[in-house]
Simulated scan of single mutants.
Amino acid sequence: MTDPVAAPRFALFRAKDATDFEESGLMATVPPTPIEMAGSIAAVEAGMLEGTRVKLLFSMPGLSLTHAWFRSGFPLPRHSHDVDCLYFILAGSLRIGTEELGAGDGFFVGANVPYTYVPGDEGVEVLEFRGSDSFDIRMLANNRAYWDRAVAQVSAQRAHWTGETPPSGLSFGPEPGGG
């Protein structure tokens, strides 16, 4: 018997057809704590969303691939996902723990392992490979001091973000606002 929703045996995808990740519905948010909620709201109001762009490149049952661009100094909150994730740095650089990684480097984060990283001076573009087309995100930043620093970082970096372009020079999907 053939499974009608079986994964394709071959598929193509194109950068121009990438869609906004937020619209994909692939990632469910575990309800944040009141501190995380208040901090997230404050960071968004300060302009945090201007520091990131995430596009879904490909998805099928049991597999997904996204492209994430974080501008310089973007304050990525400590978080985890309920699936394994493999990251490949396409361009730019980041610091994770004490390690500096650049284009061609990568890292693996197992399911439910907390992590964060800091984009370098040019920002960072990563390809995110997941062995699932459905996963969660759990914020692990239940600390007012963290969110105060994140809001300050957004405020300090926001003017720089305006002139930044993806370090790879690649474009994925339409620009925000239909451009």
Rank of each mutant, 00 (worst) to 15 (best):
D133H: 10
P166R: 11
S134T: 15
A141Y: 05
D133L: 06
D148I: 10
R149I: 05
Q153P: 02
G163Q: 10
E125Q: 06
Q157D: 14
E125I: 01
V124K: 00
S132T: 07
P167V: 03
L140N: 02
D148L: 10
L127F: 13
A145P: 06
I137D: 10
H160T: 15
L140Y: 04
L127D: 06
A156M: 12
A141G: 06
R144V: 15
A152Y: 10
N143M: 08
V126T: 08
E164K: 03
R138M: 10
V124C: 05
S155A: 14
G123H: 00
D133I: 11
V126H: 04
D133Q: 02
V154N: 01
E164H: 02
L140Q: 13
L140S: 05
D133C: 05
V124Q: 01
W161V: 03
F135A: 09
A152R: 10
H160G: 05
A145Q: 15
G123Y: 02
E128I: 12
E122H: 07
M139Q: 13
S134C: 12
G123C: 07
V124T: 05
W161C: 04
A152F: 07
I137Y: 08
A145F: 09
P167D: 07
T162R: 12
A159K: 08
W161K: 04
Q157Y: 07
D121Q: 14
M139G: 12
F129N: 00
V126M: 08
A152T: 09
V151K: 03
P166H: 06
G123R: 00
N143V: 03
S134M: 08
F135W: 13
R158A: 10
W161Y: 09
T162S: 11
A145R: 14
A141M: 08
E125V: 03
G123M: 05
E128S: 12
F135Q: 04
I137C: 06
V124L: 03
A141D: 09
V154E: 00
N143D: 15
A145K: 13
W147H: 01
R144M: 11
T165Q: 13
D133G: 08
D148W: 06
E122P: 01
Q153K: 12
R130V: 10
D121P: 09
R144S: 14
R158F: 05
M139F: 14
H160Y: 09
E164P: 02
D133P: 06
T165V: 10
S155K: 13
D121I: 12
A152P: 09
N142F: 06
M139P: 05
A145E: 15
F129Y: 08
S134E: 14
I137S: 11
Q157C: 11
G131E: 11
V124N: 00
A141L: 05
L127C: 07
E164A: 07
P167K: 03
T165K: 08
D148P: 00
V151N: 01
R130Y: 06
A141H: 02
T165A: 11
A159Q: 12
L140P: 01
G123T: 05
L140W: 02
V151L: 07
R158I: 15
A145D: 15
